[in-house]
């Protein structure tokens, strides 16, 4: 694909995105003026006014969830570039990724055996 075509595509995407945003803004405008009401600023809590923000220290046992999230989040991040070169590299890429996933999967199994996936 010629560079110009690529830039045109990019421009088209930009215009479409801007158009979508503009449309949303127009729809919002068409719904009329919003009235400022104090009730809308408070989180819904079954009719109660939330007495305070949930801005608290977490128990350390949640670190397991954080680690697991991090592991699998990173896995996804590595898979994007891998997907780009997958066709070129072929079966080797599949094996490499298999090893990578297996290591992560072993981590998951280990966490499981340590009751890390149990809520309490």
């Amino acid at each position: 694909m010629a560079p110009l075509t690529q830039y045109l595509l990019l421009l088209g995407m930009g215009i479409t995105t801007a158009g979508l945003v503009w449309m949303l803004y127009l729809i919002k405008q068409s719904l009329g003026q919003t009235l400022d009401e104090p009730g809308k600023d408070i989180p819904a809590e079954s009719g109660n006014l939330a007495p305070k923000p949930a801005w608290l220290r977490y128990h350390v046992h949640y670190y397991g969830y954080a680690l697991l999230f991090l592991a699998f989040d990173m896995e996804m991040a590595y898979m994007y570039p891998w997907a780009v070169v997958y066709r070129e590299v072929g079966i080797l890429a599949l094996l490499d990724m298999g090893v990578f996933l297996m290591i992560l999967f072993l981590g998951l199994i280990y966490t499981w055996t340590q009751l890390g996936l149990k809520r309490q």
């Binding site: 009401e37 104090p38 009730g39 600023d41 408070i42 006014l49 939330a50 007495p51 305070k52 923000p53």
Partner: peptide, 17 residues
């Protein structure tokens, strides 16, 4: 809709938020 006596409570809670 700014009901009394809710307004005071809501604003107080809102400030805390």
């Amino acid at each position: 809709y700014r009901p009394e006596p809710l307004v005071s409570k809501i604003e107080e809670a809102g400030q805390q938020q």
